[in-house]
C-alpha cells in the first residue's frame, strides 16, 4: 500500500503542490530534449537519403566539438574556428563517402550499419589522437545569465543559455525544413529518399547526394556539439549521451524530421521527470536506461514509431 502510494500518488501530489519546480524540471528536460533532437536529426537525414543507420552520429558530435575546441585552444578566433570546423566536417563527409560508402554501395543495410560502428571507433580514436582526451571547456560566447520568469505569482528560474539553445534548435529545424523543400539539392535529397532510380534519372549522382547529406549531418553535429560542449564540457561522454538519440529515433520513426524533434522532447522531458520524481524511489540514475525502456515499451504498441511510415509486407 505504501509502495503504491509512493509510486502512484505522491509524485503527482508533489507536482501539483510545487508547480514552479515542476515547470523548471520540464524546462530543463526540454533543453536536454533539444540536444537529443539535434543528434537524432543528423541520423534521420542520413537514413532518409541512404538507408544507412549512422551509428557514428554521436561521435561526429564529439569530433566536431573536439575540433572546435582544439582550434580555439590554438588561438584561432571563434568565428574562424567554427568556419574551419564546418570545412573539416565536409572533408570528413567526402572521405567517408570515398572510403566507406562507395565500396559498400548495394550492400545489406546491416553491413553499412556495422561499418558505421567501425567509423565510430575510428573517429573517437582519431579525434582524441589529434586533440587529446582531457575534458575541455567550450565557450562560444553564448550568455549564461540566470533569468527569472514570472509564473503564476511566483518566479521560475531559467538560464539565458537555455533560451538560446532552444532558439538555435528551432532555427536549425526551420533551416533544414527550408533546405529540403526550397532548394534543388534538397528536393533531390527527398527524391532519393523516395526512389533511388528516379533520382538518378533526374541526373543527380548518388555520390553528390551522399556527400551533401553527410556534410549537413556533420554541421548539425557541430551545432549539437557546441551546445552540449558549452553546457557540460567536451569529453568522451558526449558520444555516450548521444547514444540516447537512438531511442529518440525509434520513438519518432527513422525517417521523420518532425519525429526526431518530438521524440527528442518526449525523451528529454520524460527522462527528467522520471529522474526527479521517481528516481529517488529506486536508487537514482534511472536516466541511464529510462529512455531506452520507454522507447521499448512504446515500440511494442507502435513498431514504426510515432511518425514513421507503416511497414506493409507483401509477397
Amino acid at each position: 500500500m505504501e509502495i503504491l502510494n509512493a509510486f502512484f500518488v505522491s509524485p503527482f501530489v508533489d507536482m501539483a503542490e510545487y508547480p514552479v519546480f515542476f515547470a523548471e524540471v520540464v524546462a530543463n528536460g526540454f533543453l536536454t530534449g533539444i540536444m537529443y533532437s539535434l543528434v537524432a536529426l543528423g541520423f534521420v537525414l542520413i537514413f532518409k537519403a541512404s538507408e544507412t543507420f549512422n551509428f557514428a552520429q554521436g561521435v561526429m558530435v564529439l569530433f566536431a566539438a573536439l575540433t572546435l575546441v582544439g582550434l580555439q585552444e590554438r588561438g584561432v578566433p571563434t568565428w574562424l574556428a567554427i568556419g574551419i570546423t564546418v570545412g573539416v566536417m565536409v572533408l570528413l563527409a567526402m572521405a567517408i563517402e570515398k572510403v566507406m560508402l562507395r565500396p559498400l554501395v548495394n550492400q545489406d543495410p546491416f553491413i553499412l550499419f556495422m561499418a558505421t560502428i567501425g567509423l565510430t571507433f575510428f573517429l573517437e580514436g582519431f579525434g582524441e589522437t589529434l586533440w587529446g582526451s582531457n575534458v575541455k571547456r567550450l565557450d562560444v560566447g553564448i550568455p549564461e545569465r540566470p533569468l527569472e520568469v514570472p509564473l503564476g505569482g511566483d518566479f521560475m528560474l531559467l538560464n539565458e543559455f537555455d533560451l538560446w539553445a532552444a532558439g538555435i534548435g528551432a532555427v536549425m529545424v526551420l533551416g533544414l525544413a527550408l533546405f529540403f523543400h526550397r532548394t534543388t539539392i534538397g528536393r533531390a535529397l527527398r527524391a532519393v529518399a523516395d526512389d533511388h532510380q528516379a533520382a538518378m534519372a533526374v541526373g543527380i549522382s548518388l555520390r553528390t547526394i551522399w556527400v551533401v547529406v553527410w556534410s549537413v549531418s556533420g554541421v548539425v553535429a557541430l551545432v549539437a556539439g557546441i551546445m552540449w560542449g558549452a553546457k557540460s564540457g567536451v569529453q568522451f561522454s558526449l558520444s555516450l549521451i548521444a547514444l540516447k538519440a537512438l531511442p529518440v529515433l525509434i520513438l519518432g520513426g527513422l525517417t521523420s524530421v518532425p519525429g526526431a524533434i518530438v521524440g527528442g522532447l518526449i525523451i528529454g522531458i520524460g527522462e527528467k521527470i522520471g529522474e526527479v520524481y521517481w528516481g529517488p524511489l529506486v536508487g537514482g540514475a534511472i536516466e541511464n536506461w529510462f529512455a531506452y525502456v520507454l522507447a521499448l515499451i512504446f515500440l511494442l504498441f507502435r513498431p514504426q514509431g510515432l511518425f514513421g511510415e507503416r511497414i506493409i509486407e507483401r509477397v
Partner: peptide, 9 residues
C-alpha cells in the same frame, strides 16, 4: 581505437 575501427570497415 582507430585501428580497431579501421579494421572493421
Amino acid at each position: 581505437l582507430m585501428i580497431f575501427g579501421g579494421l572493421i570497415i
